[in-house]
Simulated scan of single mutants.
Amino acid sequence: MRRAAPLALLLALAPAAASAAEWKPIFNGRDLSGWVPKVNHRPAGDNWRDTFRVKDGVLVVSYAGYERFSDEFAHLIYETPLSSYRLRFEYRIIGPGVPGAPVWAVRNSGVMLHGQAPGDMQLHQRFPVSVEAQLLAGAPGQTRPTGNVCTPGVTVTIAGVPMAEHCRNSSSKTYPESQWVRFEVEVHGARLVRHIVEGETVMEYGDLRLAPSENAEFGAAPADPATAGTPLARGYISLQGEGHPVEFRNIELMELAE
């Protein structure tokens, strides 16, 4: 009788094989195919002032067409909803920022997880209901970790305790402006999310749930209070523009069979 391979060996080999076979690019390096822009005050699909553009194979959040920023918070939304997956890319935040951007938005971007569909966002909605993996860069001498978590319209739990504040810093080091940073997020429905910066897990949280009482703060449509606490297990990913230029490259996705 043929002997079965040891379980430990199978577990060790399977992730490596899956990783090699299942990563796929979701940005083609030529145009915005597969992505939908949603700029605050503009309808979904209107890439106002070419906020999102492609240059030399890099996806750029650009403010070259702006004289001044006036709360045109922007999101480039991947067209396919997802539940359990891994997403990885490289990003760098470059300068200078555009005049008029909020102080907190300087050297600030993010990737939104389990967000709303582009057509479900209101015309005057600054951010999608989602969980944000915040992407930051620090000025010289500044301590400013990246890979933080923020919660527009949702709640999460960290180490078994509901997160009370809007944003929580990760354990990452500070990366300076103009440096490319490798970022990965691992998402398992509403159960678990990990942020990984340069190969190191810097933030982990779970129990993602809707918190509609917050929606009015960023312009989302009022939601039925009865939906409060509903698990948020599926949605759209989006790359964020908040008034400071940022570049993305090598954007890849691996869907997980959960």
Rank of each mutant, 00 (worst) to 15 (best):
Ala139Phe: 12
Leu76Val: 08
Arg86Thr: 06
Gln116Asn: 10
Tyr78Pro: 01
Gly138Asn: 13
Pro118Ile: 04
Ala159Pro: 01
His75Lys: 03
Gln116Gly: 01
Ile158Trp: 03
Leu113Gln: 02
Val156Lys: 05
Ala74Leu: 01
His114Thr: 08
Glu132Met: 06
Asn108Phe: 11
Ile77Asp: 01
Phe89Ala: 13
Phe69Pro: 07
Arg92Leu: 02
Gly147Arg: 04
Val61Gln: 14
Cys150Gly: 03
Gln122Glu: 15
Ser109Pro: 04
Gly119Phe: 05
Ser171Phe: 06
Trp104Ile: 02
Gly160Asn: 11
Val106Trp: 08
Arg168Lys: 10
Gln122Phe: 01
His114Pro: 08
Gly97Asn: 04
Ala139Tyr: 12
Leu76Pro: 09
Tyr63Trp: 11
Thr155Met: 05
Pro162Asp: 08
Arg144His: 11
Arg107Thr: 04
Tyr85Thr: 03
Glu132Asn: 03
Arg107Val: 01
Gln116Ile: 02
Gln116Ser: 14
Tyr78Cys: 03
Glu79Phe: 00
Asp71Met: 13
Thr80Cys: 01
Gly65Gln: 05
Thr143Met: 08
Gly110Phe: 06
Thr174Leu: 07
Asp71Ser: 13
Ala101Ser: 14
Val161Leu: 06
Tyr78Gly: 01
Asn169Ser: 13
Thr157Ser: 14
Gly153Ser: 07
Leu87Trp: 02
Leu113Thr: 03
Thr143Lys: 14
Ser172Val: 06
Gln134Leu: 09
Glu67His: 11
Glu90Gln: 15
Ala74Asp: 04
Phe69Leu: 07
